[in-house]
């Protein structure tokens, strides 16, 4: 692959108006570097659901479903390390602490059955999540990337990441993410109130309170109200 292919990709990046065409283009381009699959996603933190965070899904059919269903994100060393570093890395270089666990080895074994054996990941800033990662996967036993190829891959990843942010943040900010009622319910939760207490304060049924906290959890793709409170504070949607 030559550098001008990278700049041609960057030029095309700006013309894509839908994620599907951007994904197709990127997949086609990185095939020249030996990568057949890729995923661009927010990085899930403890217990967050991966599925709502995925922005480009170029994983083989069946593997994505399997990964979600088995909740692999919680044990996969590549995924865990993606939350811990700001720098691009080879999957093979994930520290043993995270890659050498039973869970992570099991994920790697299953991935191999889908033709995913090695890879390279580029963490990036996300305005919606902790951070995001663009992970490129190869069926080769190990990624043989020259320093120049790494440079090419990171450059393309950055522009793909920029384009996807431009395509996906069409809502004006995150204001619409939570309704006023949902924010109110989270604020009371932050103040230590149970749903029953909140229902008395707001003068509504307890199941209504639970319904609103459930909506807030769904909005963030998290499984507990505590997590939803943390997310809402982190994104400055509520100010306890």
């Amino acid at each position: 692959m030559i550098d001008s292919d990278v700049f041609d990709f960057i030029e095309r990046c700006r013309k894509h108006t839908a994620t599907a065409s951007l994904l197709g283009d990127l997949l086609e381009t990185v095939r020249n570097l030996g990568f057949e699959h890729l995923i661009l996603s927010g990085v899930p933190l403890g217990g967050q659901q991966l599925a709502p965070m995925v922005e480009l899904n170029g994983w083989p059919t069946g593997w994505f479903e399997r990964y979600i269903e088995a909740e692999h994100a919680a044990v996969d060393g590549v995924c865990i390390y993606s939350a811990k570093t700001l720098k691009p890395f080879l999957w093979a270089d994930v520290p043993a602490k995270w890659s050498n666990t039973d869970g992570s080895r099991r994920v790697a074994g299953e991935a191999a059955e889908f033709g995913i054996c090695s890879g390279f990941a580029v963490p990036m800033l996300s305005v919606h999540h902790w951070q995001s990662v663009l992970s490129f996967a190869s069926s080769a036993k190990s990624c043989a990337l020259s320093p120049r190829q790494q440079v090419q891959l990171v450059t393309m990843a950055v522009y793909a990441g920029m384009s996807i942010q431009a395509l996906s943040s069409d809502d004006s900010g995150e204001d619409g993410l939570l309704t006023d009622r949902e924010k109110e319910v989270l604020l009371w939760a932050a103040a230590g109130k149970t749903s029953s207490e909140t229902s008395q304060i707001l003068g509504v049924a307890e199941r209504t309170v639970k319904w609103h906290s459930n909506k807030a959890r769904e909005a963030f793709g998290v499984s507990t109200t505590t997590q939803a409170v943390v997310e809402a504070v982190r994104r400055r949607l509520i100010h306890p």
Binding site: I10, V151, V158
Partner: peptide, 23 residues
């Protein structure tokens, strides 16, 4: 820093590269 470039995208800003990313 390449890490922060998606922020420009989110603002719908166009950023012209002068060269490749580099470590």
């Amino acid at each position: 820093e390449t890490y922060f470039m998606p922020h420009h995208g989110a603002l719908k800003w166009r950023a012209e590269p002068m060269g490749m990313a580099r470590e």
